[in-house]
Each structure stands twice: as C-alpha cells, then as structure tokens.
Design a protein around this nucleic acid. Sequence first.
DNA 1: GCTTGTTAGTTACAAATGCAACAGTTAGCG
DNA 2: CGCTAACTGTTGCATTTGTAACTAACAAGC
Lengths: 144, 144
Amino acid sequence: MHPDDFDLTDFLPYLLNQAAEECSLAFQKHYKDRYGMLRTEWRVLFHLGRFGTLTAQEISARSKMHKTKISRAITKLEHRRWLKRDTDAKDRRRELLQLTPLGQKVYHDLVQVAHDHQLELLGQFKMTDAKALQDMLKRLARLQ
Amino acid sequence: MHPDDFDLTDFLPYLLNQAAEECSLAFQKHYKDRYGMLRTEWRVLFHLGRFGTLTAQEISARSKMHKTKISRAITKLEHRRWLKRDTDAKDRRRELLQLTPLGQKVYHDLVQVAHDHQLELLGQFKMTDAKALQDMLKRLARLQ
DNA sequence: GCTTGTTAGTTACAAATGCAACAGTTAGCG
DNA sequence: CGCTAACTGTTGCATTTGTAACTAACAAGC
C-alpha cells in the first residue's frame, strides 16, 4: 500500500480516541465542576451504583482499568464517605465495596446527567444507526 | 428516569473509551516496542507524514491535542532526527516542521502496520457497516 | 513609532498515571 | 502440618500529563 493512500482521519484507533475525547468532555464538566471527581472516580462510582456490591478486582475486570487506579479512586471516594468497605469474612483479602446513601445520591444525580447527555449525543442519528453504533463499539471493546 | 434503567455499558463516552483503549493497545505495541514512541509522538509523526510541512499550531488544531504535548513530542522526534524544524521567514514565531528521510522511513513502516491493523479491526463488520461506523465517529468527533 | 493585545511555542510545577515491588491472605500439595 | 505458589490490594518511584506563567514575535490603533 502506498502511504499516501492512508488517511489518518479514517484510522479507527485515532478516530475512536477523537470521538471518545470529544464526547467525554461535556460530561466531564459535570462530575469535575460539581463534585471535583476524576474520570476514574466516576467510573468506580458508576460501577458500584449500577451493580451494587463489588470488590476492586471485580471493578477492574469489568472496566479493564488498572488496579492501582482503582485503588486510589476507592480511597478518595471513601474519604468523601461515598462508599464504605467491609472485609469479606470468607476471604480476608477481598474488600466488599458499596455506596453509602450519600454516594448513591451523587450517583443518581450523575446518572440523570449521563442519560441526558447520551440522548443528546445519539439524537443526531437514526435510532437504528445509534443501536448499530453501540453494538459495533461493544464488539470492538470486546464487551460482547 | 430511574437509575436502574441506566446501563453503564451502553453509555457512549464510556463505550467509546473502552473501544478506543482496546483498539489502540494492539497498535501501540508496534510503535512502542519497535520505536519506543508514545501515542503523542506517533500522532505528530503521522500528521507530518500524511500532510507534509505543518506547524505545531496546525497539528494542534487538526488533532485537538494540547500544544504542550505537541511541543514535547516534537522535541523528542527532533532528537531522534525524525523531523527538522525551520523558522518561517515570514513569521518568525512559526516553526515549519517536516519529516527527515529517516522519519519518513519510520512513518512508512508504521503506516503499513496501521493499515493492516485497520483491516483486521474492520474485517469483522460488513463493508457498509464499517463505513457507517467511521462516519458516525467522525460526526461524534466533530470532524465532519 | 509606541502602546496594547494577540499568537506561537516553551517551561515550571503540580497532579495523575504505570510499573514494579511489597504485605497480607488463601490455596494446593507433598 | 509446612512449604510454595497465587491472589488482593497498597505503596514508592519514575514517567506523563495538564495548567498557568512565561518569552519572543507580530498586528492594530493611535
């Protein structure tokens, strides 16, 4: 292949990064400005809000984020009293994490924002196209 | 909206990040292991390889990367003698950047890898779906 | 020509990240 | 039981990043 035939702006990893960056930005404003959170932190919050009690390891497996990032996010969320941890009695290495009522409040608030943001992003496409996009992204992310 | 109805794994910013991460990883191995480059560096390399002579500012506008990242990437690429810079005679603030023959060699090598990687990623979809995916991503990234 | 404001690019510092080493716990197996 | 290997989560350190301040060069208006 002749290199002039290669269009950088069609290159999927590049395109995905650009789109991800663009789409994350507007939403980032909400959790950053309103709650001073980092991306890692809202992701942990969202996992716990959506799936209930999880260990750090399980969050890592689901989100594919590195365990050190998760460990630090958990510490921060704990200091804000948005989650609490209990050592698993059956396996004292594991820590069972779950949101406090306060953490759930924040979660509910941000879910609402996320939902609205999602509608806006996907609103520019036909319903079937939007669904197809999500499916393809899931396959690319090896989530299904 | 009830928060239980919100599925994190359908949330576009999250999904895009996951897919971007997954798709970038395999390609990253090539420029990282073979050339010890960072993501920012191959992006600058790719822009110069694809579009010829550019200034840092133009690369920033095209890629939406922050100018400090670009400045540092340029310094690294320059030290490896993959690009050279010349002050624009008409505006001595601007620096005209272009790849050296050596830099072009690296670019051509990586373009080939990128192209193969792209085929593999999109091969799992029907041609028309792949095209639709790229179009939607471009719109989300506000590239068109 | 001078002042003021803007732009291109760099640098300093603080914050976030990745990697490797670590402690503590459990599991497997002789 | 006693030993080694594997696993969960944390920490230290080097690297990367983001923000803001900075220098140098140009542009516009007077």
